[in-house]
Every structure is written in structure tokens, then in C-alpha cells.
Amino acid sequence: MRADARRNRDHVLAVAGDVISEQGVDVSMRDIARRADVGLATLLRHFPTREALLEALLHTSFHELTARAAELEASQAVEGALVAWVRECVAWTTEYRGVTVLMAAAIEDPESALHVSCTTLRAAGGRLLARAQAEGRARDDIDGDDLFALIAMLAWAGDQPALAPRADRLFAVLTDAVLVDAGDRGGRGAEKPAQPSTRPREPRR
């Protein structure tokens, strides 16, 4: 790609990130082009679909969260690693309002530009969950699909003004339901390590 074309592409991505943070993923491609001061045809030449634009915008974050799962797996106890990774995923997804809906759809659509990144991310979380289950620290009747759905639910709640103040409470309820005392897979939740707040981040400007 020529240097000027790459600069244009990077500019569009930067503007798209700001617009999506402000208005959510349902914002029209035409509005993004207008804010980036480019023609719609130029935008579509770089990113023919909304999913392609989001894949380019979120690719680095997907990669970082996948790598983070491996890092936590190697450095923390099983329940701490799982809780920390889920918390980081929830915090990240609240940066782009509505992205969890597209991610959930992309999981089921192999033709989506987001499909590979989303399934890779889901698999990373599934490994952390399976590790906790193998040591009797997480209930064994859920899988990576369930975990991904729970993350999406928490992120959705964080997007809702009426529910956002309860984000930490809802997160605690979820982790208490997923984690169990060692040797008691059907028992009450294990004590969780203290973690930073899950409250949604302020939109980027």
C-alpha cells in the first residue's frame, strides 16, 4: 500500500474509533465518511463492510486480549486468571457501544470479517475456564460459548445508563455463580480476589 493511501486509511480508522465510541456500532458508514472528510466510495474501498471496518479497528485489541489470556494462565491461580480476564474483556467491550452484539453474531457467521478474531478470543477464554474446571474451581456445566455470552451480557448491562451503576455488583454475582469451592462443584462460590472496577470507561474523545 502506498504511503498516502496508508495515511488515509489510518486517518479513517482513527475517526471511526471516535465516532463509534460516541454513537455506537450502528452509526452509518456515511456518517463515518463525513466525519473523516472522505467520500463514501473511498471509505468503502478501504472497508467494504461495517464488519471489515471493525475488524481493522479492533484487531490489535483482539490480539492483546488473546495474548493476555495466555499470560494470566501462566502467572496466576486458575480462578484469579479467569476472573481477571473476564473483567478485562468486559471493560474493553464497553469502549465501543454495541460491539458485543456484532461479536456474538460474528461467532455464528463464518463469512463475517470478525469471525476469526472472535472465535480465537472465545477459545482463549474457554481454555482459562477449562483449566479452572479441571482443578475443581469452576462449575463444569458451562463452556466457552457460555462464558462468551456472559461477557456479552455484562458488557451490554454496562452500556445501559440505568444498569451501569450496578456493574460491579453484577460482575460479583456472575463470578460467584461460575466459581466454586475446591471439591464442591455444585456448592457456593469460592472467595474471589479483589479486582479493579468494571465500571465502563469514559468514551474516548
Rank of each mutant, 00 (worst) to 15 (best):
V173W: 15
Q76Y: 06
L114S: 04
A149N: 07
Q195A: 14
G186I: 02
M153Q: 10
E88W: 02
C118S: 15
F148H: 12
D109G: 02
E51T: 12
R166V: 10
G17M: 10
T120P: 14
G80I: 01
G183M: 01
E95M: 12
A134I: 06
E71K: 12
L43Y: 06
L154H: 03
E95Y: 15
R50G: 08
R169F: 13
R169I: 05
A172W: 07
V180L: 02
E135V: 05
R45G: 09
G80D: 08
A113Y: 11
A124K: 06
V116C: 04
E79I: 09
V78E: 12
L43W: 09
A106M: 02
S117W: 07
L57I: 04
D184P: 11
A113W: 01
E73I: 07
E64I: 04
A134Y: 04
R7I: 05
A16W: 09
A182R: 13
R188W: 11
F148G: 01
R127Y: 05
L150S: 03
R131Q: 10
R2F: 15
H115W: 05
I107S: 10
Y96A: 08
L13V: 01
L40D: 13
E95W: 13
C89H: 03
Q160M: 14
M153S: 12
G158S: 00
G24W: 05
E55K: 04
Q133S: 00
I142Q: 01
V78G: 06
G80E: 07
E79V: 12
R7T: 09
E51A: 14
C89I: 05
A123I: 11
Q23D: 13
P200G: 04
L179C: 09
T120E: 15
R139L: 08
A14G: 11
S75E: 14
A104K: 05
P110W: 08
V25L: 07
D145E: 14
T175R: 14
H63K: 14
L129P: 00
V101M: 08
S117E: 08
E73T: 10
A104Y: 11
L128V: 03
R68W: 09
A149S: 15
D159L: 04
H46Y: 12
E55F: 11
E64L: 03
P196Q: 00
A91Q: 05
L147A: 00
T94K: 08
